[in-house]
Design a protein around this nucleic acid. Structure first.
Lengths: 164, 164
DNA sequence: GTCTATAGAACGATAGAC
DNA sequence: GTCTATCGTTCTATAGAC
């Protein structure tokens, strides 16, 4: 619900109804909505890290990048696609929220992956360019509902990695 | 307020207090909050179009691009910077909202500008890549509060336009 | 009189928290 | 289930402009 409909428009009542639990059960496990949002992002990050770990096993850098963007294209073609859950959440939560720390951790992990692809350090300008490719692809594809933007971003990313 | 704090967390009461008008005055001029959001984006789009029109007068394509990203970098270094108002709004409003049409119009206008820069049609893959550069720069710079991502996006964009 | 502005109460619905 | 607070919205009542 947080991903599909947005965080602020998704009320606690809708969450517990969807989960089929009592309201007290939620507040026994989470201090409040802020912590619930952080937990949602943490779970999303975990799945994302799993994907990156899989891709890390692919030997060739160009192939790693291709698989990465193939996965993005796959998710973007889904009817439930709604862009990057972390970039979206960043729009709705304050920097003081516990969710923000998870968002920053996501970007660190993404930078680490890209650094591994181009075999450099995370502070390399090439890594920043690849992050721009990812974020731009997800953001634009979300609004325009056009998966071809992922393809465009991939072509761009291939230039950075210098893989034809 | 919609830009800085977000649309959903900014209540009608805060808006009228900030504007110094009565509640009835707001509802005399707007059918409701949805229309107010659309009007906010319309005003933002107008200012953005003014900028693009200025840049269109610059003769050299490479210089047009440089000025465009220089303006992005300038706004990103502002303490009030909060990313792209249209991409942000897209996270908070539904596709059925009157605001969504303004957001789509923004992307059309942006594509038109980029098409003019590379002297091609708006459906050219190069235009899509430039949109990815813009969206990625704004989104990533917002979360990480790192203006150097704009610079990275610009370097990327220069490759597309094939300007050193 | 008509129009538009004002301040503010009150509406039902829903929010998050307990 | 219940609490309080706030949401977006509507309504009452009034004041000044043309």
């Amino acid at each position: 619900m947080f991903y599909r409909d947005g965080i602020n428009v998704t009320g606690i009542d809708r969450v517990i109804a969807g989960a089929g639990v009592a309201k007290a059960s939620l507040y026994n496990n989470f201090s409040g909505k802020d912590e619930l949002i952080a937990a949602y992002l943490e779970a999303s990050l975990e799945r994302f890290v799993d994907l990156l770990d899989e891709l890390a096993e692919v030997a060739e850098p160009g192939e790693r990048l291709a698989r990465f963007f193939a996965e993005l294209a796959r998710s973007a073609s889904d009817a439930a696609f709604s862009g990057c859950p972390f970039a979206n959440a960043a729009v709705e939560v304050t920097p003081e929220s516990p969710a923000h720390e998870v968002i920053v951790r996501f970007y660190e992990r993404l930078a680490q992956f890209f650094a591994h692809v181009v075999e450099t350090t995370p502070d390399d300008p090439a890594v920043k360019q690849l992050i721009v490719c990812y974020d731009g692809a997800m953001s634009a594809a979300k609004v325009l509902r056009d998966p071809s933007l992922i393809t465009a971003a991939e072509a761009l990313a291939r230039r950075i990695v210098a893989v034809p």
